[in-house]
Nucleic acid binder design. Sequence first.
DNA 1: CATCGTGTAATTGTATCCAATTATACGATA
DNA 2: TATCGTATAATTGGATACAATTACACGATG
Lengths: 219, 219
Amino acid sequence: MSIPPLAATTTAAALATRLRQDIDQGRWQAGELLRQEQLASEFGVSRIPVREALAQLQSEGLLRIEHYRGARVSWPTPAEIDEIFDLRHLVESDLIARALPRHDERSCRELARLQGQLEDAQDRLGWIGGDIAFHEALYRPAERPRSLALYRQLRAPIDRFSVQQLGPEARKQGWAEEHRQLITAAASGDVPAALATLAAHLDATRMVVLAACADLGDG
Amino acid sequence: MSIPPLAATTTAAALATRLRQDIDQGRWQAGELLRQEQLASEFGVSRIPVREALAQLQSEGLLRIEHYRGARVSWPTPAEIDEIFDLRHLVESDLIARALPRHDERSCRELARLQGQLEDAQDRLGWIGGDIAFHEALYRPAERPRSLALYRQLRAPIDRFSVQQLGPEARKQGWAEEHRQLITAAASGDVPAALATLAAHLDATRMVVLAACADLGDG
DNA sequence: CATCGTGTAATTGTATCCAATTATACGATA
DNA sequence: TATCGTATAATTGGATACAATTACACGATG
């Protein structure tokens, strides 16, 4: 059981978290403008923390702020999505190779627990959050904080496609199977197997995300 | 000749650029606090754009903002520096391998021009800026905007050590020689040679930065 | 009818002001 | 004397108010 985080956070950060979810859930279309005043009144705050939240999301690559015009959600092109998955392949392969030798029985139990929790997730946001948690637990023993942050940063702009396109059912079998193979590889320290599974996992996800991107671009 | 950017920028962005330089030049010590009011009066603006600039620099990893306490410049540990250079190796190797086949006579002339400009640089900031420009021109033909942005992001938190430690003389020979080898490899499309030179270039820089980190940590 | 000014409304960027929190000085107490 | 508690100052976070810029409606003109 985790200790509650003493609530010492800023409203701008809370807003950023909320807006991140809204973007993932497709609240705004491709180039639609996010109005500061509207968001401020919606959440009962002034525009100052709204602006700081928008700046934060811009630094995460989720939207782009144009001078005196407004903030519009960014829409990765298929080429950018490809590039992001190539980068994820580079970074996550490095992470998993470093993490695997350092996994132990306890960390593998944790992985299994997270996977169970993931398969029980009810809504799409919980499901994507569970997937993130699983992979972070998989990579954490590498003790590479910068790479882990980079992993998060690379996922951020494309998770919306998974959230919006995939229900908890789509590709659930293949994806759960790959996760279980990763747990097995972690338990036995089989780096080549983990690398192969990870590559397959990423390639499959890439195809789904590209398809979702095309669909949402049309609609 | 590049067209001047129509000056359409915000004061927060201008402040961020200036503060970035100040951090690179060692204006603040390891955990020293940046005072908003002081910066605001120094630049003749209110605290609002100062805060936005600080938030921007935090997102770049140059400083960390603590709630109701203030912003202090972040100080990478040797382990973090190692990790950053490992990531640079991954990303820049990928970039150079993709860029090399797409270099032509014109782009190589541009590389040579930038290298000449770099060797003429007078102050340390101009020198580091020239190094950044050279590597960006080297990687740009890859047409991988995300990777290029990542390259910038990885350099940002460690360039200060190069700026503060290295004069234009330190390791100038070896470093200029490596740059010329990279130009030759680009002209001939010799990917293995470029990868080897890049690896050596990065490793040499890593050593210098780690030494500078240790020195500045002591003083 | 299309196109170009012009003026007004809407929106963002910044300054000023207030509230919330933290740091510091100073005295009480063991 | 060292430590704790309290009052005050210093600082940040946020709200309100104003200035700068852009978007839009509307009419004039070819």
